[in-house]
Design a binder for these strands. Structure first.
Lengths: 351, 351
DNA sequence: TTGTATGCGTTATCAG
DNA sequence: CTGATAACGCATACAA
């Protein structure tokens, strides 16, 4: 019957329904069509298994309802969460998501932008490290955690307050001499403010502290050495550590334990990110300053898709909060054991 | 100068270079074009900032070089890894990836398939739970961890051998009485074979064991109760547990510790997945049967893109291996502290 | 309200 | 090797 075995097109539907092409188009675009025709068309479409070809539609309308998310890698829980929530926010708005992973390569970041641009995405959300990124001014772009220019809205969490909060918490929980550990990328970014907030609070409150920043993203040895040097007769001369990330905090805890120092009894550790083990928000990984990942995702998507481009803030900082996770001196309730029903998102992890 | 402020098209390039449209097309498709013309065209393209419009190209060629990955959520480390490696494999082959997250909703799974089909992807890789999924026979489809039919190639790890291996390892490491814990989804899938392998090995080797399977994906209470019942005078009447997933294993370890039982001294625990904390393969989360995630991703992509559809296996099981992760009685070296250079993938986690 | 014609940016065919 | 022209599937302005 069909002239071709390929996927049916609007023309096929029109012929099948005995109406014209334009009428079929109107039906699928919600235009005014008499009820009888509408039904005929929908029936024909169903019978033929017709699906819109969004490529053809995009070519006409010049918008694809697709957004790209460019990030270093979904194997890191923070990025995995981000991808997850951005996808969710996009899907809710009827948008599709193209994922492009850069693996922390600055070249890849540029290549990915080129790639998704060729693909005519309606916008880009990116978490990048390349300070010289060429961004097409005509294509909506929202940056996460890195400020480029007033033309590129950046969304981040309130890193400065987070640093402040970490210092205050450690002191409230009984610490007296603090350390700040960070592995910093070569280029400056919003997360640097965690350190500023931390140090500023310590200074204005007369709290003794020291900071150690390493630039080698692969090695934790400098921190191991630093910790060793500060242990005298088996006792550390510090009792609180704020780490720039949860990963750092986690490793530091391992190091401390290996050195025979008890966490949190002797030394308390606070990280940054709010990492949930296995994506389950009831399972904290370490005590941490929690980034509002879902809010950040929602905000990034909203800003990107906002029709009113005139009133967009250049930098949006979303509030963080503190959460106990076993590396500070507080009880951590094992809620998940009991299968409590009061889950925030009502998510279930089948896996 | 330009008639429009919009993105330049091939026509613009042709006019700028003083050649015809067809010539420009040939240049960008690697066809034979005289060197002088080629240079002229490339210069013009660069000057105008021309980029191919893949939507238009796709409309003509009927292939988009885009593949969809449908999965429950990248917030779970296993899915995050999978998305990561599938993306990598795709990018290496010049393909783009569309990500669609279902959040474990069976309806969403079907909707996502519809969505990416409208988007004319060249194929779909999916990790789904809906047994009644309608799969378009004309669109290449590779399933992960779920067998649908001979028409849909499925890639998984060798779950059965993994179960066997877990049992054997526990015994080798000194355990004598084993437990198997699992939270199983309602529909059967490849991962069920972990249990079969485990039980089969125990039986043929005369090892006493018990299995507890729960179907409530939210609550771990049954396992808490089961553990409590098996503790007499503070001593457990078992000394090895194999859990169907690392998440399960992790929770079980928490429960055991809370009950005053030392892991791994009194009870050893092995999970399944090979979860790396923070995506760093040097940081195991628990002792585990490691799934070859990268291989699985590579294989799924290869099968999907394979031109010879006739010789595709209906089920591909990739080999697993065991890795110590601190919940069994072996030393776990903290390699990452020392910043060793011998990393398998040469990955670096800037974050 | 419904039908017809045109073009979106590209590729492919086929004469020059 | 080059250049004009016809699709690809859809949306839309315009005519009926």
């Amino acid at each position: 019957m069909n002239k071709k075995s390929s996927t049916p097109t609007m023309k096929d539907v029109a012929r099948e329904a005995g109406v014209s092409l334009g009428t079929v188009s109107n039906v699928f675009n919600g235009a005014q069509v008499s009820e009888s025709y509408k039904i005929k068309v929908e029936e024909a479409a169903r019978k033929l298994g017709y699906k819109v070809n969004r490529y053809a539609r995009g070519l006409k309308t010049n918008q694809t309802r697709t957004v790209a998310f460019i990030c270093p890698g979904t194997d890191h829980p923070f990025f995995g969460d981000l991808a997850n929530y951005i996808n969710k926010a996009l899907l809710e708005r009827g948008y599709r998501m193209m994922l492009a992973i850069t693996q922390y390569s600055l070249d890849m970041e540029q290549k990915c932008i080129q790639m998704v641009t060729e693909n005519k995405v309606d916008g880009i959300i990116a978490l990048t490290y390349n300070p010289d990124l060429r961004i097409d001014p005509g294509l909506p772009f929202v940056s996460i955690d890195r400020f480029y220019s007033d033309a590129v809205p950046c969304v981040s969490c309130d890193n400065y307050s987070g640093g402040t909060l970490a210092a205050r918490k450690l002191i409230e929980l009984g610490a007296t001499k603090l350390l700040f550990f960070n592995i910093a990328p070569d280029v400056p970014g919003e997360p640097d403010k965690r350190q500023y907030g931390f140090e500023s609070w310590c200074r204005s409150n007369g709290i003794p502290f020291e900071s150690l920043i390493s630039s080698d993203s692969l090695a934790f040895r400098p921190f191991l050495q630093s910790i060793r040097e500060r242990i005298h007769d088996g006792k550390p001369d510090f009792d609180g550590i704020f780490c720039n990330t949860d990963k750092m905090a986690y490793v530091v805890c391992q190091i401390l334990k290996e050195q025979g120092i008890r966490v949190p009894e002797e030394v308390q550790v606070i990280g940054f990110d709010g990492t949930n083990m296995f994506g389950d928000y009831l399972m904290p990984c370490v005590s941490s300053i929690v980034q509002p990942v879902q809010d950040m995702a929602e905000t990034a998507v909203s800003l990107l898709l906002s029709s009113d481009k005139s009133q967009i803030p250049t930098l949006t900082c979303l509030p963080v909060h503190y959460r106990a996770g076993g590396t500070t001196r507080e009880a951590v309730k094992l809620d998940y054991i009991y299968g409590t029903e009061d889950r925030e998102q009502g998510r279930s992890n089948g896996k």
